[in-house]
Design a protein around this nucleic acid. Structure first.
Lengths: 348, 348
DNA sequence: CTGAAAGCGCTAACAC
DNA sequence: GTGTTAGCGCTTTCAG
């Protein structure tokens, strides 16, 4: 008696002496006579029966899988998002497919298009760039998509965005209020949506304070500790009067802090440093880094909830309105931008 | 004409005026007359046909999905593994399911058991603890599993392990050779396999050097920067003569370095610090942290290759031997453990 | 409450 | 080469 392969509804049905329909009903908790339930459950337990999820998906048209795609899972901001997404979706029985696209725009488009193969029920996407091709692909997607990031007006996709303009403003205002005047900016790749927005925020906040942004005070580079250090050196070489530097993420800020310290500068005495994302790295430096929390965790949570909501609303109402939420930034002030002498974390 | 739902083989077949079998053949590149190929491809393109992966899986018995499960995707060591696993499997057409179990042993067991639902073709698992229950579950699993971590002798599961004993020895020898004598150890949770091994390695290396390990020189704590700092303070409070501290990961080491600096100690002059994993955090401190690279990336790569190999060998040869590889550790010496005055990164 | 049967979309024999 | 047909394992009418 070759029990060829794992047990199926049929195996169980035979053993329990009922029909496969009854097995299915019992497995799904759809009413059945107590006796039937008992026999099926016993047979299932004895044989270690587990329903085949693929067959279920084929029948039901839903896989209970969600895809989360972003540039780089090494980035703490995305880790926070992943955690929250998992926290929302797993209890609901969803599995999570992760795609770290390595900032490859083609790969990103591929992810959107791959929704068509019905492998996952929905997609949470953090795009680096949003081209018309992206928008078209998203509009035509067979499954709901939630974008974490900014979309052009009129886009017909749900999204949750950070407010990096306000975030930058928060940091700049803080620096200006504590008396800094020559505030440099180290940005990440500028040809991305967040990159553009952070630059906008930086310049706007300066203008609002009556200061004209100078080109020489902005550096653009890849994300990374070393890149941040190099950028800071360039900035300080060109203009030793710089008294503070705002960075587009914590890696850059940490690098900048190192560079400054290697030049013998005191932080925050000679140079204030502020990062973005408020990741673990902000607590990995001395002095501790001030940082603007753009709410990665919260954005992840909201995106997950939005997507799940779409998935539950059985027949997607054709004209149902596009949803868009914005998460407010939060400035966390630590030693790296304190007024001189306070909490610098470095013994004088 | 309600084109109810996305196109299927049938839709394409009708439009192309061929049978569904021909559509399937063309889609899978199985020979067909050039004319047939053209017509099918045209129809498919016009309708934006994408084969339903779920139906394929049901037929083929394979989902082309792999699950990777570990404690915490926030840990840089696991990020490296994930990257390498993805690099190996994606080009082969596999999707990656990620499970961050949060060190919940029950969740971990659940992952192993969930293989039974045929959702993924195989599992790469980094267990925290390996109980008999785990071993049984793994032995009975319907799908191949590769464990990244140490398994008890006689386990019938493929695995790739780090050599944390040698890794610890590497660090200790280096410290001893550079003249350190009172070497403390800050360990992570000791009731885990890696925790136990690292302690073993620490004690063995000391004994090999003719030093008797003292209980008071070892601290056990959770992983985390703050936890590392607290442990270092306890250690130094109890024994100010400690001249070096070896830590079970970079977070702990970073915390320990901060604690020492906050006490006014010079690193490496007064205290040498060595971490483990050689993660980005090692480059996030001043001085740069020495660290023992346990080969996370390589372990990930090897595990992925092992699993893929199992998946390709069509009928799993019943008696095929269990595979087990061990990755050699590598000590990366940086400023935090240099001989005094060399490369400390802090201006004297 | 239960069983028989249809069918989700696809691939792979098997005949022609 | 190509079409016909039989399932993969499950859920869900539809009768009884």
């Amino acid at each position: 008696m070759a029990s060829s392969g794992p047990p199926t509804v049929e195996t169980i049905a035979q053993r329990a002496g009922v029909s496969i329909a009854s097995v299915s009903r019992v497995m799904n908790g759809h009413g059945a006579r107590p006796d039937t339930v008992r026999r099926v459950e016993r047979a299932a337990a004895e044989l270690g029966y587990v329903p085949n999820a693929v067959a279920r998906s084929l029948k039901g048209g839903r896989t209970r899988q969600i895809t989360f795609a972003m540039q780089d899972i090494g980035n703490p901001a995305y880790v926070s998002m992943f955690r929250e997404i998992q926290a929302v979706t797993r209890p609901l029985g969803y599995r999570l497919l992760l795609h770290s696209t390595d900032a490859d725009a083609a790969a990103e488009l591929g992810v959107v298009r791959s929704l068509a193969d019905r492998t996952s029920d929905g997609l949470i996407l953090c795009p680096i760039r949003v081209t018309d091709e992206h928008l078209t692909a998203m509009r035509e997607a067979v499954r709901p998509i939630v974008v974490i990031g900014s979309l052009p007006e009129g886009a017909t996709v749900d999204s949750v965005r950070a407010d990096s303009v306000s975030g930058a403003a928060l940091a700049l205002r803080h620096l200006l209020e504590s008396g800094r005047r020559r505030i440099a900016f180290i940005n990440g790749p500028a040809d991305t949506v967040p990159g553009r927005n952070r630059l906008l925020g930086y310049e706007k906040a300066l203008r609002d304070a009556g200061v004209t942004p100078e080109r020489g005070l902005t550096e653009t580079t890849e994300f990374g500790i070393e890149a941040g250090a190099a950028a800071a050196h360039r900035l300080l070489d060109a203009d030793p009067a710089i008294d503070s530097v705002f960075c587009a993420n914590d890696q850059l800020a940490l690098g900048a802090a190192h560079a400054a310290q290697d030049r013998g500068l005191d932080i925050p005495g000679d140079l204030a440093v502020i990062g973005m994302d408020d990741s673990e790295l902000a607590r990995a430096s001395r002095p501790l880094l001030s940082s603007v929390d753009l709410g990665s965790a919260e954005r992840g949570r909201i995106a997950a909830r939005m997507l799940v909501a779409r998935l539950e609303e059985s027949p997607p109402p054709p004209g149902s309105p596009v949803r868009c939420e914005t998460v407010a930034p939060r400035l966390v002030v630590r030693g790296s931008s304190s007024p001189l002498g306070v909490g610098s974390g470095i013994p004088a």
